[in-house]
Design a protein around this nucleic acid. Structure first.
Length: 915
DNA sequence: TCATCCCGCCACACA
DNA sequence: TGTGTGGCGGGATGA
């Protein structure tokens, strides 16, 4: 392979650098840390401490396993014949019962992750038994697969790069060690380096707090400043110059040069004063942390951004005043490898090689941010560090969205930035993350999105910011009404602050949101671009998106048509000041279609950390259609099963939320992809007599006492009006909804298009709040309700008790939120549907949940995450459709750790049978 | 042969 | 004395 190397001279004199062409791309270096899909990992050796079927070990005789020449001991009785060390241990174990016990204990602690390996091993052993040594050798786990870099990647994949400020992620070293299948010792190596960059901080024994990359720029800036103060640049130049002369160095040279003896005390101390454990601060053995910081400093002050391990090691050794013997040097280099692996996983550096008279030397190049002044470049840099962890296609989607959005902001040359990002990504074909990152990249995308969003916000400070701010009112604030938190609200959609506001929602690819993301409250894919793309999607929303929910870690979002004001509804569903024209609609629809195939941008920025994120309808929206025709369809074809309508009834938001002001949210409707979409709008005052096809919600800013919950109430609408014609698909009636606060975990809910439908008033606590009807045509095929993982706590006292008579009927299942039910079984007559933790209810599942036969309850199953209980108080099903009503109430959930309480929302929908 | 770095022993700090 | 941490370097692995 072709290798380009730098020379030390190049490093010393950046002006003469041949970086442009001389730096080894790191392909080779990166190989060491290439992420290997575990599913494809072929362990070559059994994990230590792993129980081994001795009966199968007979095959591993010294002859067959030349790697471990063992004598005297019968291989068949050895559990770890793979290495000389293992054999030695075996010998010792045989001689010492204590040691044996110890090893036994370790076995019990065998990493979970290696279960795969164990399983594989088992299989492989069988294979080997029938196969050859070569086969065995092939399947032995490569040390690369156990590298610290890969381990670090796995570690990082567990946590969001940019966690919400509200979420406190605690890292249990034991847990992580077990989860990742390594000894805790390895985790220490990782967290020590991460701690040096303040990505984590020690909070207690065996506990670390995850901070993410939020403060990374700040940290790097500090390190850079410190590095400059330490004159590292001079030291490097000095050492590198000496390298050219001789490979040795003399202790004391640094002193002669006037360099400080040690900057240990000057290094950034990220110890959390609030945290009890400070022992680590006093220990001399923080060297890995300190070394890491110094190592980073070297890069930050280096003009070439390339540091050889030799130079770094020498500088570090000299600073520590260690005796400059070769042993120390080797040790330092080893440690630097450890650090470099972690930094590489963080995409801050990459390995390169430099050549000099003595040959090729390993070095690392800084690829992290170099400008911490919050410039566009920062975005690029940060993005570059993130993008490698993204799938290419996802990146492309992000970029597309970013361009759309960024193009609108003159202060931020986003297109250029995105192009640079693209170049960066392209220039790193060896990125270990590119193809394999799996669950990690969506997190990174979210991070990127956050960065983008932040940049956009910072750069424009325009209406977007203003609207954004409004979109995220303080929890419990009774300030002026705000649109749904986290939503990007275009000013033109907010023309009527007190009236209706439209929430833009981008199409989102649900698959782009691994559960992990949700679990961590991380923004989903293309959030970055998504955020930027929100505006561009607004038209689309007007076009046909009635109501869309995008799975979001912290937000349940609903969007629909913009309603410029309490304007009377003519049934056209078109705002008076924004009469959508067929052409526009069509165009919008066309624009949206591609969107549907792209991850919807979601916004998550520091400004909105506490803000819920826009949810996107995973289902591809129907084609945009003429409103008029839509209306016609609504009336004329309402009976068609495919027609989906959403209807909101008049509601007294104030009553429901107390003093909270309310904003009306309208949702347009979209029908079956094959059919035109009907759009209607209504105002809460006069909707009662209008056609029920228009969905309208009242957004009530979370009033005090609701813990930040935002209440979304159906707009005013006359229950009698909009009655679905006979034969029309019965809609789901949703009297009210409580939006989770920003701190809420993922709460993806997807509603399908609905058909107008007369529903009795619901929510006694919310008098006047009419139900929103969701027509659920053939629940079987279309996604109607998507429940994502979230923690649900039994709201002993629902703040929004349903007053719907239906709910009080014997058949009503009550509002009991967490009604256990048979897993995966839809039982007619059962009260509701419960989505268990970690399970994103798929449309099909929901359909099953709301199976024909009336009220039903189903346990959708799902791992690990507390469940979201969605109890359909009543489910009515006709041959064509199932109708259900759900009341919603907020609940408070205490996190597993007991430390941080996360508000959870439990959606309780009351359902009303269709007459 | 050399670059890498896994692995785990063992010392130190605390509780 | 037990446990959490992490320094340290032997030696395995891959190029």
């Amino acid at each position: 392979m072709e290798v380009n190397c730098l020379t030390l001279k190049d490093l010393i004199n950046p002006r003469q650098s041949r970086l442009d062409f001389a730096i080894e791309d790191g392909d080779n270096a990166q190989k060491e840390n290439i992420f290997v899909d575990r599913s494809r990992m072929a362990p070559k050796t059994p994990i230590k401490n792993e129980p081994i079927d001795l009966s199968k070990q007979k095959i591993f005789t010294p002859e067959r396993n030349p790697i471990t020449p063992v004598k005297l001991v019968d291989q068949r009785q050895q559990t770890e014949p793979w290495t000389p060390t293992a054999n030695l241990k075996m010998l010792i174990s045989a001689a010492s019962p204590d040691i044996r016990d110890r090893e036994k204990k370790k076995g019990l602690f065998r990493p979970i992750e290696n279960k795969d390996d164990a399983f594989t091993d088992s299989l492989q052993l069988d294979v080997v038994g029938d196969g050859s040594v070569d086969e065995f050798e092939k399947q032995r786990p490569s040390r690369k697969q156990k590298s610290l870099g890969l381990l670090c990647q796995k570690f990082l994949a567990r946590y969001p790069s940019y966690p919400l400020s509200s979420e406190k992620t605690t890292i249990s070293l034991d847990e992580v060690a077990v989860s990742l299948g390594v000894e805790r010792r390895r985790i220490y190596d990782i967290v020590n380096v991460l701690e040096s960059l303040h990505l984590v901080s020690r909070v207690a024994k065996n506990q670390y707090g995850w901070h993410g990359r939020h403060s990374l720029p700040k940290t790097l800036r500090s390190l850079q400043r410190l590095g400059e103060e330490q004159k590292y640049e001079e030291q490097m130049a000095h050492l590198q110059q000496k390298e050219l002369e001789l490979m040795d160095y003399k202790l004391g040279e640094r002193k002669k040069d006037g360099y400080p003896d040690s900057q240990d005390q000057q290094l950034l101390d990220f110890s959390e004063p609030d945290y009890p454990s400070s022992s680590a601060n006093s220990r001399k053995d923080k060297s890995l942390r300190i070394m890491s910081q110094k190592f980073v400093m070297l890069f930050l002050v280096s003009k070439t951004k390339i540091i050889t391990l030799d130079v770094a090691a020498k500088i570090l050794i000299e600073e520590s005043q260690d005796t400059p013997d070769h042993s120390k040097f080797k040790t330092k280099v080893r440690r630097l490898y450890d650090i470099a692996n972690v930094l590489t996983s963080l995409a801050l550096i990459k390995k390169v090689h430099v050549t000099e008279e003595r040959g090729r030397k390993p070095a690392f190049k800084w690829i992290g941010p170099v400008d911490f002044s919050s410039s566009d470049e920062e975005l690029v840099d940060v993005s570059a560090s993130v993008l490698p962890e993204l799938k290419r296609e996802t990146y492309g989607q992000i970029q597309v969205c970013a361009k759309q959005r960024l193009a609108r902001h003159g202060s931020f040359n986003t297109v250029q930035a995105s192009e640079r990002i693209q170049r960066k990504v392209n220039s790193e074909p060896s990125s270990p993350y590119r193809e394999e990152q799996g669950s990690g990249y969506s997190l990174e995308i979210g991070s990127l999105a956050a960065v983008y969003q932040q940049k956009i916000e910072d750069g424009s400070q325009g209406k977007a910011v203003a609207t954004s701010k409004r979109a995220m009112p303080p929890s419990g604030s009774l300030d002026p009404p705000a649109p749904l938190p986290g939503l990007s609200v275009d000013s033109e959609y907010c023309a009527h602050p007190l009236a209706h506001q439209v929430f833009s929602v981008a199409q989102l690819d649900l698959q782009a949101f691994p559960t992990q993301n949700s679990l961590h409250g991380q923004v989903g894919v293309s959030a970055a671009s998504a955020a930027s793309d929100v505006e561009s999607l607004k038209p689309a929303l007007l076009a046909s998106q009635p109501l869309v929910y995008v799975p979001s870690p912290s937000l349940l979002m609903l969007y629909g048509r913009l309603q410029e004001g309490p304007a009377p509804t003519s049934g056209s569903g078109v705002p008076a000041d924004r009469p959508p024209t067929p052409s526009v609609q069509k165009r919008l629809g066309e624009e949206r279609k591609p969107q549907a195939e792209e991850p919807a941008p979601k916004r998550q920025s520091r400004d909105y950390e506490d803000s819920p994120l826009a949810l996107v309808m995973p289902k591809k929206p129907s084609e945009a259609t003429d409103l008029t025709s839509a209306k016609t369809l609504s009336n004329g074809r309402s009976g068609a099963p495919e027609d989906i309508h959403m209807e909101a009834q008049a509601s007294a938001a104030e009553e429901a939320s107390g003093k909270a002001t309310a904003n009306c949210l309208t949702s347009s409707e979209w029908g079956n992809p094959s059919r035109d979409t009907e759009m209607e709008k209504s105002s809460k005052e006069n909707e009662s007599t209008k056609e029920p096809s228009l969905l309208q919600y009242l957004y009530v800013q979370s009033p005090a006492g609701l813990n930040g919950f935002n209440v979304l109430l159906p707009g005013s609408r006359n229950p009698q009006a909009g009655g679905a014609p006979s034969g029309q698909l019965p809609p789901l009636g949703i009297p009210c909804m409580v939006l989770p606060s920003p701190t809420l975990g993922p709460f993806p809910v997807l509603y399908s298009p609905t058909v107008p439908r007369p529903v009795s008033s619901a929510a006694g606590a919310l008098p006047g709040a009419g139900p929103v009807h969701f027509g659920v045509p053939s629940l079987g095929s279309t996604a109607h309700l998507l429940i994502g993982p979230t923690n649900v706590v039994n709201p002993k006292s629902s703040t929004l008790p349903s007053a719907d008579p239906q709910l009080q009927r014997p058949r009503s299942l009550g509002l009991s939120p967490e009604v256990p039910g048979p897993h995966g079984i839809v039982q007619p007559g059962s009260p509701g549907c419960t989505a268990h933790p970690g399970s994103a209810v798929k449309p099909q599942q929901v359909s099953r949940a709301l199976s024909p036969g009336g009220p039903s309850f189903c346990d959708l199953g799902g791992p690990r995450v507390p469940s979201v209980a969605v109890n359909a108080v009543a489910v009515e099903q006709t041959p064509e459709v199932t109708v259900a009503r759900f009341p919603v109430c907020p609940v408070k959930h205490e996190g597993p750790s007991g430390g941080c309480c996360a508000l959870e929302t439990k959606l309780l929908f009351s359902c009303q049978s269709v007459p």
